[in-house]
């Protein structure tokens, strides 16, 4: 009996180790996303008032929520199918980025993250989204 228990434990530990090394580890390493300086320093053209945040929330619900989740925790209904981890927008990693950087990433997209510059053609709306994303900070 002890022999089988040992074998079973070894299999479980081996399986978990393999998963951690192969399957899970790439998600932990984030691919750097370089933002051009022109965008990094771009000033937010829309004041962060209630109207802008509400407009941003509406856009978020339509375009972003299914992957990033209602509160930006990266737990949307489609998140599990993504090859790229959607990230936790409530944390400093995202919130420390400039408005311009967020604007650039929403506009241009990368890998699983689609480009929204055609779907959301007005820059003002992307700024509204940025203003809403600031409210996700914990």
């Amino acid at each position: 009996m002890k022999k089988y228990l040992f074998l079973f434990s070894a299999l479980v530990i081996g399986f978990v180790t393999l998963n951690v090394l192969s399957g899970f580890s790439p998600l932990q390493t984030k691919k750097p996303w370089t933002v051009p300086d022109a965008f990094k320093n771009k000033k937010n053209a829309v004041a962060s008032d209630a109207a802008s945040i509400a407009a941003g929330k509406e856009l978020w619900s339509t375009h972003c929520k299914s992957c990033h989740g209602a509160k930006g925790l990266g737990d949307g209904s489609k998140a599990a199918q993504l090859k790229t981890e959607p990230g936790d927008f409530s944390k400093a990693d995202t919130q420390s980025q400039s408005d311009g950087s967020m604007f650039y990433k929403i506009s241009e997209g990368r890998d699983d993250m689609p480009s929204f510059k055609k779907k959301i053609p007005e820059q003002e709306d992307i700024w509204n989204l940025v203003n809403f994303m600031r409210t996700l900070k914990k």
Binding site: D49, D125, N128
Partner: peptide, 14 residues
């Protein structure tokens, strides 16, 4: 219209 659905309101705020 209330300002929420009207993006104009956001831009005019500034």
């Amino acid at each position: 219209l209330s300002a929420q659905g009207d993006s104009t309101a956001a831009s005019t705020a500034k």
